[in-house]
């Protein structure tokens, strides 16, 4: 940087190398964002075979979105599914992470276990749900195993009850994501200064005390990060319930998520409502992203 003119001559390459990213971002993400917002202010749908609109209607789409009541049902469904998935996931991940990173425990076969728990994360969600749909169908293997073992006398119809359908969706998502969370938390736990653990040991702290008084508090930034990113992911919940219930959100629309609702509007070409719903989700995820940005930003400054 001694030679300023030279530095400038090189630095124009910064723009050149950025160009592909910016170009593609503008065309495939920025423009769609603007069109999405734009469409949310227009009425634009198919009434039978007649195309209605596009006509400018101001905030009408938002009004009907909130007044129909559907949005609250689907928001509730999405949140219930997320909580059912997140709570067991974070508990399991914390416990496994603590065990993996505990040097005194000296667990053998760690690589094997880590490989296994991360595996479901890479599975195609739609194929996984189709698999669960067949495995848990009335005449499927799970029912026949349970019957062969004598637990039940006739097939349990998993997909006809709200609890078991939601349970299956949450279970699948939990299975797909707890490995990822475990590895993240473990990386965080490994980063904790080991002298803290040694000092606690000298003072005669039990492993439970160490976990709750040292590990958890020091892990807080990562926990917040994991929780918010999981929430953003939870809002996007689509593939699993869509395939498992064939897009109906049955039983009685209790497993219909927000993105499934959006997908319905997109397929029926009700672009006004799809736009309003998208903007709503965009605002929520933007706020959540900002929190993540803040949290990780602080984290970086510290260490």
């Amino acid at each position: 940087m001694k030679n300023n003119a030279k530095a400038v001559r090189y630095n124009k390459w910064g723009y050149i190398f950025l160009l592909p990213f910016l170009l593609v971002y503008v065309v495939f993400q920025f423009v769609p964002t603007v069109t999405t917002i734009y469409n949310s202010f227009y009425e634009n749908y198919l009434d039978g075979l007649t195309q209605v609109g596009p006509n400018f209607v101001g905030l009408e789409n938002y009004k009907s979105l909130f007044s129909s009541g559907d949005i609250w049902t689907f928001t509730k469904n999405t949140m219930v599914l997320w909580i059912m998935c997140f709570v067991p996931q974070i508990i399991l991940s914390l416990v496994l992470g603590a065990w993996f990173s505990d040097v005194r425990l000296k667990l053998k076969g760690q690589r094997f276990f880590k490989t296994v728990i991360y595996l479901p994360n890479l599975i195609m969600a739609s194929a996984f749900s189709m698999l669960f749909f067949t495995l848990f169908s009335d005449g499927g293997p799970v029912n026949s195993i349970l019957m062969q073992l004598g637990f039940i006398s006739e097939p349990y119809r998993f997909l006809t009850y709200t609890g078991s359908t939601r349970g299956l969706i949450a279970f699948m998502n939990c299975l797909m994501w707890f490995g990822n969370t475990t590895i993240l938390l473990m990386a965080g736990m490994m980063g904790i200064d080991t002298s803290l653990f040694e000092a606690a040991e000298v003072d005669g702290a039990t492993s439970t005390q160490v976990f709750f008084r040292i590990t958890l508090p020091l892990l807080r930034p990562i926990l917040v990060y994991v929780m918010i990113t999981s929430l953003i992911g939870g809002l996007q919940l689509f593939d699993v319930p869509q395939i498992l219930t064939n897009g109906t959100g049955d039983p009685m629309r209790t497993t219909m998520t927000l993105i499934m609702y959006l997908n319905k509007h997109l397929y029926s070409k009700n672009y006004g409502m799809a736009g309003a719903l998208s903007v709503l989700l965009l605002i929520i995820t933007a706020i959540l992203s900002l929190i993540v940005f803040k949290v990780t930003g602080n984290d970086k400054r510290k260490g």
């Binding site: 769609p32 809002l235 997109l266 992203s289």
Partner: peptide
Amino acid sequence: IMMIPTQVTALG
């Protein structure tokens, strides 16, 4: 923009 999912701009 890292966290913004593609679904929310799918319409556009």
